[in-house]
């Protein structure tokens, strides 16, 4: 029998390719979570003790700039993962995350997932193989935005 949470995670393309066994293991570290619009999911500088698989809603990643207020850097939507500062020390959020629409998500406990990664290299490699494409895609998108291509129509 698969837990409800495991079924929800399997429905998301993000972890497609993971064996059901690995997803089940992963979901042992998971809980369901919702945020109303406007809620702070995590604050910049706070402890990075979790990550979320977004199912519904939209999250703004941002930074508070003195004199300019909260600056949104990027919005993140359903089907992807929020948060990767938990992967490496110092396990602190570099940016803050706020729900700009009601958010439904699966929360994974970072310490538990890290422990599993360290003790089970197969699980660890599978996790990183899912997470690194997200990181590279966001890095590439950011690089393109730095180019400010709009100067040319």
């Amino acid at each position: 029998m698969l837990s409800d949470l495991t079924i929800r995670v399997l429905a998301q393309p993000f972890f497609a390719g993971l064996t059901i066994g690995l997803v089940r293991e992963l979901c042992e570290c998971a809980t369901a979570e919702t945020f109303p619009a406007g809620a702070t999911i995590f604050a910049e500088g706070g402890p990075a003790d979790a990550f979320w698989l977004l199912e519904h809603g939209k999250v703004a990643l941002g930074l508070h700039v003195p004199g300019r207020g909260d600056q949104v850097i990027e919005t993140i939507g359903p089907g992807t993962v929020l948060g990767w500062s938990w992967l490496h020390p110092p396990y602190r959020w570099h940016f803050g995350a706020n729900a700009i629409e009601p958010v439904t998500a699966v929360r994974f406990d970072a310490a538990a997932v890290r422990l599993r990664c360290e003790t089970d290299p197969e699980f660890g490699y599978a996790m990183l193989s899912r997470l690194t494409p997200i990181i590279t895609e966001r890095l590439q998108a950011t690089r393109l935005r730095l180019l400010d291509l709009w100067g040319r129509p």
Binding site: E74, G77, I100, A141
Partner: peptide, 22 residues
């Protein structure tokens, strides 16, 4: 989706490619 949100913008921020998977 926009690169640089203005005050009052509640829509998406980022590159248009990020909308493709959705």
């Amino acid at each position: 989706i926009v690169d640089r949100p203005a005050d009052g913008w509640t829509g998406e921020v980022g590159l248009v490619t990020t909308l493709i998977p959705r």
